[in-house]
Amino acid sequence: MHRRTLLATASALAATLAAPAFAQDEPLKIGFIYVGPVGDGGWTYQHDLGRQAIEAEYGDRVETTFIESVPEGADAERALTQLALAGNDLIFATSFGFMDPVMNVAARFPDVKFEHATGYKRSENVATYDARFYEGRAVIGTIAGRMTESDIIGYIGSFPIPEVIQGINSSFIHARKVNPDVEMRVVWAYSWFDPAKEADAAAALLAEGVDVILQHTDSTAPLAQAQAAGAIGFGQASDMAAFKPSPRVASIIDEWSPYYIKRVGAMLDGTWESGASWAGIGDGEVVIGEITEAVPAEVKAEAEALRDAIGAGEYHPFTGPLNKADGSVWLAEGETASDEDLQSMNFYVEGITAQIPQ
């Protein structure tokens, strides 16, 4: 790949700095690794829409490729190395468990830029990006609290990391705000995408009397289980529109396209820098999908008002008074959680009686 070359004279230097970072007769090569298949209908599907948006935006100025269904761990390091050796200038790693493999491979390929989704480790050639999923969980938690008839809602977790614990807590807080009798059951799938495990988790929750299922896993299997049992659920990561109007009564959509287009643009014009991005509803990165007619009009209006207040910065989903599950004070009246608090969250809020696996 042709890089800009600094020249000795001031005039030549100025001309060089004004030139594009990459020669236009040679496309910027961009690689992606995905934890699931592109047809998962959820997380990976949505990231791949972002990849396609890059191609639509920049045309023949870019060339993208992807490796799907990459397990977290040693396989991820091999896939990242493969993409780097293939000449990719920018590589997006789209799952939390890719974090250490990204750091290891980035150290070996300092001229390649890496972007890691939902991680927190960075270096000169590694940036991170995330979405404030907990904002969307507040909205669907409100719907769940209003619509449960058994007063028992369920949550399928992937792995007990801060991102998922934030979602469980935010969902429960807002379900209980509108329904003080709500209880929450949590089942862990220990996978981001495994339809069989997700179906089993949903079945276990339904057997406990759950009639509303929320999930932080990537397949539509929980919605299929909810449909068979007459329960309701929500689209996760993508709209999962095939299950409208019920059991999928709303959804949290991860809209990665604007971020991907922006970061590729920075590579093309030579302004890419390492950093951290954590965007939410107000930024258009977390989107609440259509709330269907299966939801009563007054509940829909309440959920949309909450969405709008969060998006406008008028309300934070973690606003005190809030206690931890052990009864100790976490946030005082009117106090809001800091990003640092959220990014290290390892506890449930008061009212959730489940235990977080260690």
Rank of each mutant, 00 (worst) to 15 (best):
Ser123Leu: 02
Asp254Thr: 02
Lys300Asp: 10
Glu350Gln: 13
Gly59Phe: 10
Ala106Asp: 02
Ala294Asn: 15
Gly42Pro: 08
Asn88Met: 03
Gly209Ser: 06
Ser338Gln: 14
Thr319Pro: 11
Tyr58Met: 03
Glu350Asp: 15
Gly282Ser: 06
Ala325His: 03
Asp60Leu: 04
Arg263Cys: 06
Trp278Asn: 14
Gln227Cys: 03
Pro258Trp: 07
Ala12Val: 06
Asp339Tyr: 07
Asn169Gly: 13
Lys121His: 08
Gln82Ala: 07
Ala276Tyr: 07
Leu28Trp: 08
Ala294Glu: 15
Ala53Asp: 03
Glu255Pro: 08
Leu6Thr: 10
Pro37Ala: 12
Ala18Asp: 14
Asn125Gln: 06
Phe347Leu: 06
Gln227Met: 05
Thr5Met: 06
Arg137Leu: 09
Asp218Gly: 13
Ile310Gln: 07
Gly334His: 07
Ile153Pro: 03
Ala14His: 09
Met184Tyr: 05
Ala84His: 08
Val212Asn: 04
Tyr34Glu: 06
Gly119Pro: 00
Gly311Thr: 14
Ala242Met: 13
Ile310Thr: 04
Ala144Lys: 01
Leu268Asn: 11
Val187Glu: 15
Pro317Tyr: 05
Ser257Asp: 12
Val212Ile: 13
Ser246Cys: 04
Ala228Phe: 07
Arg132Pro: 01
Glu293Asp: 15
Ile165Val: 15
Phe243Pro: 06
Asp339His: 11
Thr94Tyr: 00
Gly41Cys: 04
Tyr34Gly: 08
Pro245Ile: 05
Ala15Phe: 02
Lys29Asp: 07
His47Leu: 01
Pro247Ile: 07
Ser251Ile: 05
Leu49Arg: 06
Gly270Lys: 11
Thr271Tyr: 15
His216Glu: 12
Gly41Tyr: 06
Gln225Tyr: 01
Glu340Tyr: 09
Asp341Thr: 10
Val210Arg: 03
Tyr155Lys: 05
Gln236Arg: 06
